[in-house]
């Protein structure tokens, strides 16, 4: 644990104090969990300090949201196409072809777009955040912020997490639309299904709750990916080598967190 953040993450009122103690006693797992909890706790407790984080939110929304649009288009198009092609392949000949449209819209909204987009963004957004904050840590820029009487969590972490929570749902709704178009393309050009059949099938099974479920997932994924990545970057130790290690840990941890959260939310909400 980087010692230079003690003044913040050792706040004794935190509900994670027990974990932090276990961490001090040598339990790395609970120590990390406690440290992560402390950062999130601190962020929420200082949510009033908008003056510190508001100026960075827009820039982060651009970096996390707008800059991810190309990769979301790319991934969603292929997700839609492959879902259509595979659905068509799996259906018996006597099943009406518009079922393909139904299958595509269901699986895209509920599972495929949120999950796959989140996994791709775990790499792109998560790695970027950890590398950025990690570099700031090892070059003492985070210490410098604190020395200038800034709260580095409000200044660096809050805007990134807020941008993630806002932009992930936007990206995933956008990805849903692109994936539907991809499904149409795959159906028409590869699986030889008429556009009318596909669109009718899609209309028949579209349910608003499915899209809402995807948005709820996206919000959670956005929160988890950005907060884990920030925590990892914030606590980098050991120079540029440490930044590399932390970046890799972020990609692995956020992917694991996303698949676990995906299952939990499906179990609870469906």
């Amino acid at each position: 644990m980087a010692e230079s953040t003690v003044s913040i993450s050792e706040s004794s009122t935190s509900p994670f104090a027990l974990f932090t103690l276990l961490g001090k006693a040598g339990n790395r797992f609970f120590g990390t969990l406690g440290g992560y909890g402390n950062v999130v706790w601190w962020m929420l407790r200082n949510a009033r300090d908008a003056r510190t984080y508001s100026r960075n939110i827009f820039q982060q929304m651009v970096q996390i949201g707008v800059d991810s649009i190309p990769i979301v288009i790319f991934v969603s198009t292929f997700v839609g196409m492959v879902t259509a092609v595979q659905s068509a392949y799996q259906l018996y000949d006597w099943i009406p072809r518009n079922v393909v449209g139904s299958l595509v819209i269901k699986s895209v909204l509920l599972e495929l777009t949120p999950l796959l987009t989140a996994l791709v963004l775990a790499g792109k957004v998560g790695a970027t955040i950890t590398a950025e904050l990690g570099t700031m840590r090892v070059t003492e820029q985070i210490d410098a912020l604190e020395a200038l009487a800034f709260d580095p969590i409000s200044f660096l972490i809050t805007p990134r997490v807020l941008a993630g929570v806002v932009m992930f749902p936007v990206l995933i709704v956008f990805g849903d639309v692109v994936a539907a178009i991809g499904g149409l393309l795959g159906s028409v050009f590869v699986a030889n299904i008429s556009p009318e059949a596909f669109i009718n099938g899609m209309k028949d099974s579209f349910e608003v709750y499915d899209a809402v479920f995807g948005i709820i997932k996206a919000t959670m994924f956005g929160f988890m990916i950005t907060s884990i990545a920030c925590y990892q970057g914030f606590h980098v130790e050991g120079g540029s080598e440490g930044v590399g290690k932390a970046t890799m840990n972020t990609v692995v941890l956020t992917c694991l967190a996303v698949v676990v959260m995906d299952f939990v939310l499906a179990s609870v909400l469906l």
């Binding site: 003044s7 913040i8 706040s11 570099t135 700031m136 070059t139 003492e140 820029q141 210490d143 410098a144 912020l145 604190e146 020395a147 200038l148 009487a149 709260d151």
Partner: peptide, 23 residues
Amino acid sequence: SYPELRALRFKFGFLFQGAALFD
């Protein structure tokens, strides 16, 4: 406390080894 620390830091200027400019 943390608010006291923030107040304390106004009294100090800190030149870091690598300057630690926000890049």
